[in-house]
Design a protein around this nucleic acid. Structure first.
Length: 119
DNA sequence: TTGCTGACCGACG
DNA sequence: CCGTCGGCCAGCA
């Protein structure tokens, strides 16, 4: 049948990429929020792992818009240079101080809410 | 195959 | 406030 998900990882990674691409300009979200939206609460690490693969899998993934639950740029060291992530965020109007997103609770984009009530 | 690591999160002391 | 531990699961030696 057509409804076969080949590899679990492929589906999960693909879903993560899809959600990250839906993050609006100047907004951010967290690994846990994405994982929870995918029904894999507790597997936030896999979201981070998917991001790590994003630079080899697909391009155009705004991984800089994904931070941890505290708004901390924990993945900044994976952008080639530890300040790339901050510069990308600030170029979108997101203020970052001490590797932390300012007004994190205000610009936080929650897929659980934004995608749930959509249509 | 086993064991360890990891861009996380929550709980515990 | 800080350190530590368990859980989650994919990738790698």
């Amino acid at each position: 049948m057509e409804g076969k998900a080949e590899n679990h990882s492929n589906s999960f990674f693909n879903n993560v990429f899809a959600i990250v691409q839906l993050i609006p300009f100047g907004r951010v979200t967290s690994y846990g929020a994405i994982a929870e939206y995918l029904g894999a609460r507790g597997s936030a690490r896999m979201v981070g792992w998917a991001m790590n693969a994003s630079h080899t899998q697909i391009t155009g993934i705004p991984a800089h818009r994904v931070v941890n639950r505290n708004g901390l740029l924990t993945g900044k060291n994976h952008f080639g240079s530890p300040k790339i992530m901050q510069q990308l965020l600030e170029s979108e109007g997101v203020t970052v101080v001490d590797d932390k997103v300012v007004r994190f609770d205000e610009i936080f984009w929650n897929p659980m809410i934004e995608l749930k009530i959509n249509n």
